[in-house]
Amino acid sequence: MGVRLLLAAVAVTLALVGCTPVADPDAPSDAPAAADDTVRLLGQLTVAKAGSMKGYSRARFPHWRDAGKNCDVRDTVLQRDGESIKLSGCNVVGGRWYSEYDKRTFSDPADLDVDHMVPLANAWRSGADKWDDERRGDFANDLTRPQLLAVSASSNRAKGDQDPSEWQPSNRDYWCTYAQSWIAVKSYWRLSVTTAEKATLTDMLDTCPAQKP
């Protein structure tokens, strides 16, 4: 399912199970933009060398936040991105998921990770080190942008904290959406990109289908 259901179904689905989405209520919905718009957004990003990891800890990005009785943002993403979901209370215990990164299908939520499109450590190196922990928590739990995605645990752990110049999904058909999502997140949160990162994102956008005039 991936980002195809990223925004539209969140509010309806969560309302049905009594969960509340965790997101900035004043933020606009930023699904990946069309290729031409994404190129413009990419051009507006600040290009800078990656910052230091000094002071970094995942604890500086508090997650997963509560999203209703006995459920959290991870459950929210698993429910949003899956089909035939089985619940125990608000906890996701079964279903069917398609991992966009590597074209694999799963039925056990334990085989999945919820990936931060822009990894927390990458965000730290590109500007989030200047934020307070509350804002970092908003970033780590962002359900409004295409920042959170249920994928295979193996692909998420292979990605680690690497940017697109260092890691891309093995599923090349997803490169366009991946680049659009990465840029949408960095643009909204005003995070910088490195020269190599920007060049690779430009190449990945070249895989986007040509738009009809």
Rank of each mutant, 00 (worst) to 15 (best):
V3R: 09
V3M: 09
R4H: 07
R4E: 05
A8C: 05
V10H: 02
A15R: 08
A15H: 01
A15Q: 08
P21I: 11
P25T: 06
P32A: 12
A35Y: 00
D37Y: 02
L42I: 05
L42G: 13
G43Y: 05
Q44R: 13
S52W: 01
K54A: 15
A59G: 13
F61M: 04
W64K: 10
D66S: 15
A67F: 06
K69Y: 10
N70P: 01
D72C: 11
R74V: 12
D75Y: 07
V77S: 08
R80A: 11
D81W: 00
D81H: 09
G82D: 04
S84M: 11
I85Q: 01
I85W: 03
R96A: 15
Y98H: 14
S99G: 10
Y101A: 13
D102S: 09
D102P: 12
K103Q: 05
K103D: 14
T105E: 02
S107D: 10
S107A: 14
P109N: 01
A110C: 04
D111I: 05
M117S: 11
M117T: 14
R125M: 10
G127Y: 02
G137T: 03
G137R: 03
G137H: 05
F139M: 05
N141F: 07
N141I: 05
D142Y: 02
L143I: 02
A150I: 06
S154Y: 00
N156T: 03
N156D: 01
Q162S: 15
P169V: 06
S170N: 07
S170M: 09
D173P: 06
C176N: 05
I183M: 09
A184Y: 03
A184N: 03
A184V: 05
S187Q: 02
L191F: 01
T194N: 03
A196Q: 07
L201I: 12
L201G: 13
D203L: 15
M204N: 04
D206Q: 12
D206R: 14
C208M: 04
P209H: 03
A210N: 04
P213H: 09
P213R: 14
